[in-house]
Design a protein around this nucleic acid. Structure first.
Lengths: 139, 139
DNA sequence: CTACGTGCAAAGATTTTGCATCTTG
DNA sequence: CAAGATGCAAAATCTTTGCACGTAG
């Protein structure tokens, strides 16, 4: 993936195995916390990485716009590939279930916010809380 | 505010000055982190409260549904009165500005999510990221 | 070579917990 | 009184930082 290298270089940064491995781990996991990513990095057969490197790599990759993150629960942000950010999250307060919803469902909201505030909303980084079908019926 | 007492008692909890003061502080501040709330509690002339009590009070008040919280930035949740939750937040990635948007703007999103997933979304607890008018034009 | 990045360990920041003591109901 | 809450300080989490050494370009 020399493309990654090019993007990094364009920003005065460098391509390192660590960054490649962190990016790969994020891709493998879909959505994951820094902690989960750290655990997963070793799954490619290579050596484990210190958490600090994972954090710094995520920062770098985020600066390039390759990954993004959302706050699904109280603690720990959840990282995902930017290209995978074609949805927003719904998080159940009852059971913790996390679902994905196509961005288009929020089109109207985005349009209205733009209209009234001139605010360019990026809904793909949003988490909406509520109750899933099951927990809702359980009440 | 005997109502607060009644609600607490109904849950097997008790009414204490600390809880009243934390609730009052949240009301005064509108939106605030546990830290800011701790600082503000003293503003009513009373003694300061230990952070742990503030956290426990917020938990209790949240359990009663009197306060809620959102994750505006990386660290620290922001608490607000539930009755004040008539809006959702838009957070500017550029300057950190936080705006409020009437819930109705998300009505369609809520309806669609309900329709397709049976998920009861509570958008008042949501933070949508993006760029405010100013930062947007600055690009 | 010369930045920039990595490892490691220590420091920060934030939240939670154990326990003796005090209060509410 | 008895069940809960509080205070305080210590522990647990989660993230960031300093610094000497390694390495991409």
């Amino acid at each position: 993936m020399s493309d990654l290298g090019a993007q990094l270089r364009a920003r005065g940064k460098r391509l390192t195995t660590q960054r490649e491995r962190v990016l790969a781990a994020v891709g493998r996991l879909g959505h994951a916390t820094p902690d989960e990513i750290t655990d997963s990095v070793g799954d490619d057969g290579g050596a484990a990485l210190p958490v600090s490197t994972v954090y710094r790599s995520l920062d770098a990759l985020q600066e390039l716009g390759l990954v993004g993150h959302t706050h699904v629960d109280h603690r720990s942000p959840s990282y995902h590939l930017a290209e995978h950010a074609t949805h927003l999250h719904v998080v159940c307060r009852g059971c913790g279930w996390v679902g994905e919803v196509p961005l288009q469902m929020a089109d109207e909201l985005v349009a209205r916010v733009d209209d009234q505030l001139g605010f360019a909303a990026d809904v793909s980084h949003a988490a909406v809380h509520g109750l899933c079908r099951t927990c809702r019926e359980a009440l």
